[in-house]
Design a protein around this nucleic acid. Structure first.
Lengths: 191, 191
DNA sequence: GTCTATAATTCGATAGAC
DNA sequence: GTCTATCGAATTATAGAC
């Protein structure tokens, strides 16, 4: 196995273990065992346990932020932008379920500046969607509602998806899933 | 301070710490320090760290299950039952936000039979609501949809509430919050 | 109930040979 | 890159005096 392949294998194994057991519960020895080598070798692939978590989290957070930015700068209507955001929130768990699992469940294991940076990015992300819904209301596209409550409720509603994809990934009809969720949310918002 | 009061104080302190730091990250020393005594004394109040978690989780799980059962055995329509379930899922986080936090974030720290029992109860709970939505569709009260996807999405959408109540509990207008969420969900489901 | 002391284990990380 | 060996720290839990 080539060096680069083993690097990828390492990250894949570590990601899955942390997803299954949690960050705190996953030891460097667990990862080493799953890689079929000794504990000391773990540090040929990463700086520290903390750095491992940080890399996973900020990688996937960037995917979300980039996806959102692309949508926001488009010239679509608020309604259309909202549909595309729902699409983003369905597709990313389908593509990277384990990373999303960490994003949702393990971010509080970050420390100090990294934790603050994560919280700041998350708030920025939410604020963009709150503003988008407010714009939709002002434009008469969406019914009157509290954009803060609706944004929080909507974003939270996607958080079961990563588990679904890790458990039943092959069986899931993604377009159908997306259609069901999109109809449910948009019907709850349309003017 | 009387014995019973100190018991309550202990559980209150432990619950808040586990909520804030996570179960794995919270040590018996953390709890002892917050109680202003030494580590050994912790075991005057609980059997073990694991038992502490189990008590918290199954207590609040019982609240949910009892609440759901009361609603299900009533003679209300499917729509009315669904509204009452939404009400339950808004009120419990308002009343016991820290317990709900553990229910959502820490259940996977359970072990063996306890973990299995928890998963079984959770599945029963979900299955009841899936069936309720199916009944609502069959009765023509709700529009045609995939009850499994909608149930998962709906139940997940409440999971931000406990955080909101721990951070801004006093400022929150509960009836308004409930109205916003109920309208959002019911509009997304009505026939 | 509270304390001191400690057992028994586990963990993240490093040193140095090959 | 992989190994053996080990350090130093932290953790759950118990024993026994007061």
């Amino acid at each position: 196995m080539k060096k680069i392949e083993k690097q990828n294998k390492f990250h894949e194994v570590a990601l899955k273990l942390i997803h299954e057991q949690g960050f705190k519960a996953t030891t460097m020895r667990d990862i080493a065992k799953a890689m079929n080598f000794e504990v000391a070798n773990v540090y040929n692939y990463i700086e520290s346990k903390q750095a491992l978590l940080e890399n996973f989290l900020f990688d996937i957070a960037e995917d979300f932020n980039n996806g959102l930015k692309t949508i926001l700068v488009s010239s679509d209507s608020s309604t259309k932008k909202l549909r595309r955001i729902i699409e983003l929130y369905c597709h990313l768990p389908a593509q990277k379920p384990y990373q999303i699992g960490l994003l949702i469940a393990e971010w509080r294991n970050l420390k100090d500046e990294k934790l603050q940076k994560f919280k700041d990015e998350k708030k920025w992300h939410e604020d963009q969607i709150i503003q988008l819904i407010q714009d939709g209301i002002d434009a008469g596209e969406l019914r009157k509602c509290n954009p803060y409550i609706i944004t929080k409720t909507m974003l939270s509603s996607f958080n079961w998806l990563y588990t679904e994809f890790t458990l039943r990934g092959e069986e899931i009809d993604l377009p159908e899933l997306e259609k069901q969720i999109s109809e449910f949310i948009m019907d709850g918002l349309k003017a």
